[in-house]
């Protein structure tokens, strides 16, 4: 997995995304652009859930809950404090970028802290039980927000500044993927895999299984929170019903369809599913019937029947022969 050693690929990637971010909104129609943004946010969500569900083997169903926390905290912070703050003598995008970045960190951290609080007791549970607890947690978050009037309650919060752009979405996705990739390359990553493979054996080899499960869960929650903050600042409107359990399932589907434990699969499935849902839209207009979700579900069933391990199984891009040959050609 160690393709991305050192800091320069990350730096180069961010610069490249920055340039691309200047061009893409100019040449792309806004509808396609919004799909592109949602795909990017979904990449972060799927990759981070893959760390918990795929790589550490814990079945969490509460990702939408963490996303909601990140989104609401970031939006509330920016709207009540920084919305009209500008740095003197600097263009607007500097202050916007700065406060967006700040809110991503704060939103992510809030979700991570909550992940710790939820994870510590519930990660002692296994399999189905953990799934039920996290599912319940997600619903609790949604209902809590529904009843908090100062953040809009059921009406939601409108008028969040639209600061999220191509660079931030894909920059976050890149940092998320690279950081998880590095983590899995380290001895900590091997410990996480050991927990997935066999908890008793992991303990017998000296892995503190509870600690590592909580670490994976907290990191997953952090990135979900960051993705939620990006989402809030793109849609400009948050509503509790956006974060119901369907949202969590959607992310789980991405992880399962891509292949549990494959980062490549998570990224691929996130893009694939985001595009698939939208590409079925013309069909609806054509037939005047809402067949979209029926066909979407049908395609998922067919895909899981024909590829039960997902698109990639546990494989990564770097595990394929042609990629290795390509790397050799580059002389790496």
């Amino acid at each position: 997995m160690s393709v991305l050693k050192g800091l320069w690929p990350l730096g180069a990637g961010l610069v490249f995304l920055g340039l691309l971010g200047q061009i893409i909104p100019q040449v792309m129609n806004p509808y396609y652009f919004s799909i592109l943004i949602y795909a990017g946010i979904n990449i972060t969500l799927a990759s981070s859930l893959n760390l918990v569900n795929g790589l550490t083997g814990q079945f969490s169903m509460g990702h939408a809950g963490f996303m909601a926390v990140g989104g609401y905290v970031a939006a509330f912070m920016n709207m009540s404090l920084f919305m009209d703050v500008h740095f003197a003598g600097m263009p607007n995008y500097v202050s916007e970028g700065f406060f967006l970045f700040l809110s991503l960190i704060v939103g992510g951290t809030a979700a991570a802290i909550l992940g710790y609080v939820v994870g510590l007791p519930s990660l002692r549970l296994k399999g189905d039980y953990l799934a039920i607890v996290t599912l319940g947690f997600g619903e609790i978050i949604r209902v809590l927000i529904l009843n908090m009037d100062f953040i809009g309650g059921a009406r939601g919060i409108p008028g969040i500044p639209q600061w999220t752009n191509f660079f931030w979405v894909y920059g976050v996705a890149l940092v998320c993927i690279v950081s998880i990739n590095r983590l899995m390359d380290s001895s900590h990553g091997r410990a996480l895999l050991a927990v997935r493979e066999d908890e008793i054996a992991a303990e017998a080899t000296g892995v503190n299984t509870t600690k590592y499960k909580v670490i994976a869960f907290v990191i997953g929650a952090f990135w979900a929170g960051v993705a939620g903050a990006l989402f809030a600042h793109f849609l400009t409107y948050l509503n509790p019903s956006t974060f119901d359990f369907n949202r969590s399932f959607e992310i789980i589907i991405m992880v399962v369809l891509g292949g549990m434990g494959s980062m490549t699969g998570a990224v691929f499935a996130a893009i694939f599913l985001t595009v698939l849902r939208e590409s079925l839209r013309p069909l609806q207009e054509l037939t005047q019937l809402d067949f979209r979700m029926v066909i979407y579900s049908l395609m998922l069933i067919i895909l899981m029947l024909t590829r039960p391990n997902g698109f990639f199984g546990t494989k990564e891009l770097t595990d394929f022969g042609w990629f290795k040959r390509f790397k050799k050609k580059l002389g790496a």
């Binding site: 895999l193 493979e197 066999d198 546990t314």
Partner: peptide, 12 residues
């Protein structure tokens, strides 16, 4: 400790 039922990491 070599646990009962071998407990190896099957996918590694």
């Amino acid at each position: 400790h070599a646990p009962e039922g071998r407990g190896i990491f099957a996918n590694m």
